Simulated scan of single mutants.
Amino acid sequence: MNRAEKVLKLLDKNNIDAIYLTKESNVNYISGFTDEAANVIICKSGNFIITDGRFTELAENVCKGFEVVNWHLFDRNITKAIQSICLNNGIKKLGFEKSNLMFDKYQTLNELLGEDDITLVPTEDIIETLRYVKDEIEIENSKKACAIADKALELLLPDIKAGVSERELCAKLEYYMKINGAQAIGFETILISGTKTSLPHGKPDDKIIEKGDFVTIDFGAMYNGYISDMTRTFVIGQPSEKQLEVYNLVKEAQLVGLENMKAGAHATAPDIEIRKIIKKYEEFYYPGIGHGVGRDLHEQPFLGNYGTKTMEAGCVITMEPGIYIPGWGGVRIEDTVLIKEDGIEILTNFPKDLIIIEG
């Protein structure tokens, strides 16, 4: 059963004739499209990818089993293209992704389809349900993205030193990813130093790295649409006792988190055990300790005290506990992890022992 057929089964359960997809990662997952600016409609009588003249040739080449619809041929009005597909295929109840369709687009589409007694039905997580567990091809793409990231950080290591700026190092890291096969960077690179490392999502700037600084690097590569996610923290010059203490606590916490990732485990399970390790610094602990990663950087399941899902074999999830002390700095260690029937496979393999870089 292909992906579109699996969608049809879910539509039957929801009593919907068809679904209109607008989220780029979902469109690409279902259709095989490899670029932007495309939508999809799945229904019993056919599958349609809606794009414009810039991408029709690409869609015809890569979207097997999909009819390509150039919406520019409908008075450059995508809602008219959708209306035509609905009328030609007997669609009376059209599902849409309620968390992704902009309200103004919804209003325009609802008004036009309403003229033909076609009802828009909000849906949630129809495609995400299928994406939760990765297939073998997806897992291989994730592994390749992780291998590219490992290699890039290995190449960057000699460049990390006192006297260079965060922005310069960031540019080099992204260059190393691309020359080693990355389709793109997976997300905006976090490369920060000194007291800025207390910011879980701090941004690199012209700050010069100095002796005594922690350097935190959170980054990923994209390969065939799939993203890796890894964080490592280094220290410039000999670390202080507190730096060693915090680093070693986070490393222990991350290992404990990994030990509590397994098929059948609830998303809250790792957090419970990690809190026992970092108790002394719990006020500086951020409970978002992991998330699914694939075509999107952040997917279900989300690990932490607010988690609602159960980990399953085939899920690809990060484990990334951290301690963040305002005005002092912070440490995060993160891996991308594959959940297997008999345990886990850590896909990011750069060393996690504290690397001390002589200033």
Rank of each mutant, 00 (worst) to 15 (best):
G181A: 02
N28E: 11
A182M: 06
A59T: 02
I41E: 06
A59W: 03
G53K: 06
E60R: 10
D135C: 00
G294R: 04
Y20S: 05
I30V: 15
K280C: 04
I346A: 11
V40C: 12
K242L: 14
Y176F: 15
L338M: 03
T189R: 08
R332F: 07
P301L: 04
Y306C: 12
K144D: 00
L113C: 06
T348M: 06
E273P: 01
A269C: 08
E334H: 12
M222E: 15
I41G: 11
L73H: 14
A269R: 10
A81Q: 01
A4C: 09
I355C: 10
A152M: 05
N248S: 11
G181F: 06
W71G: 01
L87Q: 11
K352M: 14
Y306E: 15
I185D: 12
T318W: 04
A265G: 04
R3M: 11
N2C: 10
H266W: 07
F48D: 03
E166K: 07
C63M: 05
K98T: 14
I277N: 06
G202Q: 10
D117F: 14
A18C: 06
V331F: 09
K64G: 00
D229N: 14
K276Y: 02
E67K: 15
L155Q: 13
A267I: 01
R232E: 07
D218H: 13
E282D: 15
E283L: 03
E320I: 01
V337D: 03
L101Y: 12
D75L: 11
M230L: 13
N248C: 06
I30Q: 10
G322R: 00
R275V: 02
Y106F: 14
Y132R: 14
T51Q: 03
F350T: 05
K144V: 00
C63Q: 06
A18V: 07
S165F: 04
F96G: 03
D229F: 07
I357M: 04
V164T: 15
Y175Q: 15
T34L: 08
D135H: 01
I185A: 11
S84V: 03
K144E: 03
P321E: 08
C170G: 10
D104T: 14
Q183W: 07
V121I: 12
G220E: 13
P204H: 04
N14F: 12
L157D: 10
A59I: 04
V133R: 05
Y286G: 15
L169V: 09
V7K: 10
I179F: 06
I49H: 04
T318M: 09
Y223R: 09
S198D: 14
K262N: 13
D116F: 14
G65K: 00
